[in-house]
């Protein structure tokens, strides 16, 4: 399990954060900087940077590339609100 926005999310030990979130029914975890548009996985292979997420306090990690580990604290990125 890792936590996403305070919620416990299961993973199988070799899944990306994005895969585990999708498997848990979570479709989006980022709000864009200009218009606050919702984003999740798009390219799935590290090319588009749409799936950015904060991993253990480090912002803007590609959820489709980061392998989920138990105990990880994953947070959504609301870039409009944070002004990023």
């Amino acid at each position: 399990m890792f936590t996403f926005d305070g919620r416990s999310i299961p993973h199988d030990g070799r899944q990306s954060v994005a895969a585990a979130l999708l498997a848990a029914g979570i479709r989006s975890w980022r709000g864009t900087r200009v218009e606050g548009r919702r984003r999740g996985v798009f390219c799935g292979i590290g090319v588009c940077f749409d799936c950015l997420v904060t991993v253990n306090g480090v912002p803007s990690q590609r959820a489709c590339l980061v392998v989920a580990r138990s105990g990880d604290v994953i947070e959504p990125q609301d870039e409009l609100r944070e002004g990023t």
Partner: peptide, 10 residues
């Protein structure tokens, strides 16, 4: 040369 960072809060 100029380096450009990721978008950030101010």
């Amino acid at each position: 040369f100029v380096l450009v960072t990721q978008p950030l809060p101010e």
